[in-house]
Design a binder for these strands. Sequence first.
DNA 1: GCCAGGATCGTCT
DNA 2: GACGATCCTGGCG
Length: 200
Amino acid sequence: LSGNAVTALDAPALDIGFFARSVHDVARDLIGCTLIYGQSGGVIVETESYARDDPACHAYNGPTPRSSILFGPPGRAYVYLSYGIHSLLNAVAETDGEPGAVLIRALEPTIGLAAMIRRRKQGDVRGLCSGPGKLTEALGIGLEVNGAALTEPPFRIVGRTVEEPAIVATSRIGITKAAERPWRFCVAGSEFVSVRPRAA
DNA sequence: GCCAGGATCGTCT
DNA sequence: GACGATCCTGGCG
């Protein structure tokens, strides 16, 4: 993945069309892309998809004040508060009117390491962005970012600049409803995921 | 290394 | 009024 990191700043950013597809395809294809917010970022190594007709998805019971962003146009950020403490970052997918989101769960830190270490007050690079709450803290993403376009500054997501990484799909983490659906995607063997996928 | 428990608050019933 | 798409710490092996 190091090649992805080195050339990420020169590569073209993803556009709206990338996100206007099946949320599961978007989740898989985001693996290996580089997420940048402000002056910090890293290679996406873990995602989860949440779809319509998915009991674990915030859109499952129809639009509410919180979840309405999920029903809007793709390519925007959906940020919400988890356990009263952590801001979790999602990428809205599917076409306008069709809900779906990809939870960004872990990054391999590559850009702006010093700033991320400062915000996290933690120097271990392996644990810097190894969880959905950790990476938002590292990048400085809070609830005020909800609704922002992921295709415009201060966001930037650049596509893979090297080859497609080996990807493993497993059951989802940290939820009680429909966790068994195989909609968690990780870079095989990555040291930077939140929880190592169990060997099959 | 593993596990139990606490922090903390917006959202929806 | 209950419940999280989580993280960290401390206790115990």
